[in-house]
Design a protein around this nucleic acid. Structure first.
Lengths: 257, 257
DNA sequence: TAGTGGTCTAGACCACCTC
DNA sequence: AGGTGGTCTAGACCACTAC
């Protein structure tokens, strides 16, 4: 039992009070000055304690307002059904899912020609630095930034499917468009990772310290080669991904926690 | 272009120098005193800047030593193959995978009877607080803490499969043991989430600030009901999960980034 | 012993929000 | 105007690591 530093003790006490409901989700914590008096510590020490809780994603702070206990509303994303090879894929699946959940979807969209970054190139089995089409999507739910999605299509595919490079949405969905050209996605490989956001990501997704991002990379394959690579960056506090594998007939994917 | 606070500028400069290789993975940063002189800032301001990088998982610090740039060695986990309904499951799959990767696996194991927490109970479709068997595993790779895994089996299953409650490993694997009793897992549902570790998790996995955990919940189903719920807590900086869905025959799951 | 980061203080000034 | 958090300083002392 070694002595804990004072700022840790403060963080521990406050964490316990948040856990047991003394300060419920969405409620405000006492001000730094009040806590300073309560714990007989300098304001800076109190700040260190609060900072620990911020880094753990338990509370947020805003200038002039105070510290607020985070609420967690997670959105479920069924990755194995999401784009079920028979379904449309892009904007549509997102909008449909969100609308079905009684929420309001919104997204901005951008298409550009880029040089392929290494991470994507290895997955598409093309050369790093070669050309590819990037279709980029910034998604919101109820006007809260939710995720960004960047899909790369290799250069060679463009010759067969020129509409991929056109700005603006493809009404019927890109997967369906490609299928109509005889290019069918018959399987995909998903990779999931997590880390703290880069400053750019933190800006786009409006996340503060203490909230990680989830990185979801989906590489789609036709019968003979990779045809696309989609990197989705999700706010870790708002999203949960699901996969259903095997025979789950008769099982409702029931939620809640 | 609003003026950035000084500690942010310091963090940005150092981040750029880390990115461009001035300070490579594993190398040491200059001391706080040196940085303080370089940036003409007080030691505390420099510490704020360094602290920002720590929270982003870019560097770590240790008393008496200094700040070190993090290295990232990720371990790939194929979740859709991992326990392929035909394969053995528990300890074995982990040890096999790790050994195949040329690393040294190690794990501690514990079995206990517990009251079922709500999160697990809803998934197993049993009452919160009812009894269940918890088989808990703490896993290491090359003596670095890697993940913890907690599998709950419902009370009713115990009557049919008493060995689940016995301490010690089940040699042939629990899935195989259950199958030999006519209880076959015919499908599962995975849920993936990410967040910052709780203090307990941080202790068990030896992670500092700036490294999130990935939570992987797998609920296994027999033909008529859930038979187990496994919660795996993974160090976010060391693990990546993969799912392969659809027809990927002829495709090697190629890696590297 | 010297150098590193870890903790803590007291006080100053600024930026933002609410009234 | 008054209260909130955000930034910054200067200095003190402690704990750990290296030599």
């Amino acid at each position: 039992m070694s002595k804990q530093p004072k700022y840790q003790q403060i963080a521990d006490v406050l964490r316990r009070e948040i856990d047991n409901g003394t300060y419920g989700p969405g409620s405000r914590l006492p001000s730094e000055a009040e806590l300073s008096a309560r714990f007989d510590a300098s304001r800076n020490t109190v700040r260190s304690g609060l900072n620990a809780l911020v880094s753990q994603g338990l509370i947020t702070s805003s200038q002039g307002l105070g510290y607020e206990v985070s609420k967690h509303e997670v959105f479920e994303l069924n990755a194995s059904r999401f784009e079920n090879l028979t379904f449309p894929q892009n904007g549509d699946a997102f909008s449909t899912d969100v609308t079905n959940a009684g929420r309001h979807p919104h997204q901005t969209f951008r298409v550009e020609l880029t040089t392929t970054p290494e991470y994507v190139a290895t997955r598409l089995k093309i050369e790093t630095g070669s050309r590819s089409v990037l279709r980029f999507c910034h998604r919101f739910v109820d006007n809260v930034p939710w995720s960004t999605q960047a899909t790369h299509y290799p250069d060679w595919l463009l010759a067969e499917a020129p509409r991929l490079a056109e700005p603006g949405d493809i009404a019927e969905g890109t997967t369906r468009y490609l299928k109509s050209l005889g290019i069918e996605q018959i399987g995909y490989r998903d990779e999931l990772a997590t880390r703290m956001p880069t400053p750019d990501e933190a800006r786009l997704l409006e996340i503060g310290a203490g909230v990680p991002v989830m990185l979801w990379t989906r590489t789609g394959y036709s019968h003979d080669r990779p045809i696309r690579c989609t990197i989705t960056t999700l706010r870790g506090d708002l999203n949960r991904m699901n996969y259903e594998i095997g025979d789950l007939s008769g099982w409702d994917g029931n939620e809640s926690e």
